[in-house]
Amino acid sequence: MNFTRVYAIVLRHIFLTMHQLERFADMFLFPIFGLLLWGFVSVYIGLNSAGLAAFLMGGMILWVVFERVSTAVGVDFMFDIWEQNLMNVLASPITILEYIGGLVVVAIVKVVVSFLVMLAIAGIFYNFHITTLGVSLVLLWFNLVLFATVLGIFNIAIILRWGHTVGPLTWILPFFLQPFTAVFYPVDILPNVLQKIAWFLPITHVFEGMRFAMTSGKFDSEEFFTGLFFNLVYFVFTVLFFAYMFNLVKRKGTLVKL
């Protein structure tokens, strides 16, 4: 792993973000408007149940972390295809690991900015402070970002293979998962079959863990490790899947035709 080359990818996206207004929108507008919407829903619900209101706000904020990271990894990759620049990057000494590493770093940096904006808005307008979760929050983040990365790598793999016609999956896939991941409600609400599906998704355990921490003030290590376990399993499978696809497109000669 050569960190200068990873930094080159970060630099490329710093410049891109400075020039592209919509890249800024990704970072600020989506989180702000999302939070405003759920903020008011929470205020309304909070009239009856302060606890439930907090669940909704917390769920919303953590969901954005997951959704933004996974989408950014795929979309930033597609920028190199759209700008017909991928071939020049691949011809350089960079390894595919460094390249994807760079994309993940960019996604995390961007989501930290979004997160801080959301913290400020939630704190100022709704008097909601997710930071009271303390260390738990860091561990919840860890599982969120890891699964988002897994999804991002999966997306890059299928784009490598089927081109950017499958690109939209990058921003659709997180929302396909959303109903099962118990972002805004406890898993118990789901029908039995769906609960089983939910259990296999690492971030379900993040949102369950968040609600537990909010009500009890304690960290649910069982939820954390269950999430982490599935994360690691998916991570290994996705990396293998990616390696297979990357090898395949080099053999088929389609990598240079993206």
Binding site: N2, A8, F15, L16, H19, F79, N85, M87, S92
Partner: peptide, 22 residues
């Protein structure tokens, strides 16, 4: 057939590649 990143300036794109090649 291939380009430098379209949305970057000439200088920026060369700076990115300088970094890639150290």
């Amino acid at each position: 057939e291939y380009h430098m990143p379209w949305n970057l300036s000439v200088y920026e794109s060369l700076l990115v590649y300088s970094t890639l090649y150290q």
